[in-house]
Design a protein around this nucleic acid. Structure first.
Length: 415
RNA sequence: GUGGGUGUAGCUCAGUUGGUUAGAGCACCAGAUUGUGGCUCUGGAGGUCACGGGUUCAAUUCCCGCCACUCACCCCA
């Protein structure tokens, strides 16, 4: 029987690891700079948490969750996003007693049962940031700036936010009824998907890609013109702060997000090279979510960024991460006594924190040296009969071809 | 869930207008005066031509099914 990786999952091979290390290092550095604390909720939670947190009518809940029953008969779900789990963590651990805002980040796998395609997988990895307990739009800018600085330091140019406000429970219902009234007048002219959206997810009407629907989108009522005073004020302040910091953004009236919990600010960062997907990062404010999950009223804002999409986009823009360090020394040996000596040497070097590889098997000098070259070692230490007899080692610089004799007890200090 | 494309060596791909030993490049292993890599040359190993069925004297090639991969829609990081 031959086993294969599951549809929509992939192996991260050594060749791709430099990207991961590079990105991980950057996001640890940046979250430290901004004073965000790492939390790691479990990968699975009670199914009900996501039903309530993400929204029962969202696509994620309706058709994309990896839900299963454990042996105790509980319905569990592999997390399809981070936020709900973080909210649970916040409530369960009494984080509302900590100084506000509570600033958190997480990194880890996310699972959604979708048809895989370019830039989309059933298991992907997200970098997730949340700031809880503060309504001030200054927090919105700070959270957005984490994404901004990350992408900048990774080497991206031309980063720009797509920005919108989707209102709040005060003003959104009125807007939605305006929008649906407008669309009902054109019901026979819009595409099938839009006819369905009209009932199930009206905001998404604005996101339709079908050619014939575009004119209706252009003429649809704009949410920005229907915000309540508080949302309007928040949005204006946010834009001012973004201007001050010179973070490029584009107001996108059509930007809506698929999860139910968003209020006020929503934003995305778009990238090329990720197939027909556009967002490398998506997030927004969710001021009612903690309360909805049984916690105290707590505003919050956050985003998720897909690491796989970042990597795809880096490749598309020819951004190369710094390479992982190559091994320094390769120990080539021939003969039983040489083998015993080599064994000691390789571990001595490693104890001194010098990266060393030992040739294995009964292979010729030639074969071992070829291996040393292939593994990109800087030096080869050659140990054969002569070296054993005289307790002198031959050290060859594999970059220059230069060769030197070094006394056995001086080897460690040689490097 | 829906639609298009593709499945031949570890990887990237040729190829067979149906014919019995299925090819290349890269990678791998070994050798080119016996203890010296990278370049070059020579040789070697490696494939149930995704899987199942059908047509045929004969199928990797044609037909059907199935699975997988892939791209796109829905939706999303």
């Amino acid at each position: 029987m031959k086993f294969k990786s599951i549809t929509g999952t992939r192996d991260i091979l050594p060749e791709e690891q430099p990207y991961w290390r590079f990105i991980e290092k950057k996001l640890y550095d940046i979250t430290t700079l901004y004073n965000y604390m790492r939390v790691d909720p479990p990968i699975f939670e009670e199914t009900g948490l996501f039903l309530r947190g993400v929204g029962e009518t969202t696509d994620i809940v309706e058709k994309e969750m990896y839900t299963f029953q454990d042996k105790g008969g509980n319905s569990l779900t592999l997390r399809p996003e981070f936020t709900a789990g973080i909210m649970r963590l916040y409530i369960e651990n009494g984080f509302h007693t900590r100084p506000k805002p509570v600033k958190l980040f997480s990194v880890g796998p996310i699972f959604r049962y979708e048809r895989p395609q370019a830039g989309r997988f059933r298991q992907h990895t997200q970098f997730n940031v949340e700031a809880l307990g503060e309504l001030d739009p200054l927090v919105d800018v700070e959270v957005m700036s984490i994404a901004w600085q990350l992408y900048k330091e990774l080497g991206f140019s031309g980063i720009e936010f797509q920005l919108n406000s989707t209102g709040c429970p005060q003003c959104r219902p009125a807007y939605i009824s305006k929008l649906t009234d407008y669309y009902r007048d054109h019901f026979d002219e819009i595409c099938k998907d839009c006819q369905r959206r009209l009932d199930q997810n009206p905001l998404r009407l604005l996101d339709c890609k079908v050619e014939t629907c575009q004119p209706f989108i252009e003429n649809a009522p704009i949410i920005g013109e229907h915000l309540c005073e508080e949302c309007q004020k928040h949005f204006t302040a946010l834009k001012t702060y973004l201007d001050i910091l010179q973070r490029p953004y584009k107001i996108n009236h059509k930007l809506v997000r698929g999860l139910d919990y968003y209020t006020k600010t929503v934003f995305e960062v778009w990238a090329r090279g990720i197939g027909s997907q556009s967002a490398m990062c998506g997030g927004g404010r969710y001021d009612g979510l903690v309360e909805q999950l049984g916690g105290p009223p707590t505003p919050g804002i956050g985003f998720g960024s897909g690491i796989e999409r970042i990597i795809l986009s880096m490749k598309e823009q020819n951004i190369t991460p710094e390479p992982l360090p190559a091994p320094k020394v390769y120990i080539v040996h021939n003969g039983l006594e040489a083998r015993h000596l080599a064994l000691n040497i390789v571990f001595d070097l490693r104890e001194e924190k010098i990266a060393a590889i030992l040739g294995f098997g009964d292979r010729s000098f030639k074969s071992q040296l070829r291996d040393a070259n292939r593994q990109d070692a800087d030096f080869a230490v050659l140990i054969g009969e002569d070296e054993v007899k005289n307790n002198i080692l031959t050290v060859k610089n594999l970059r220059t071809g230069e060769q030197k004799s070094v006394a056995g007890n001086e080897l460690v200090t040689f490097f």
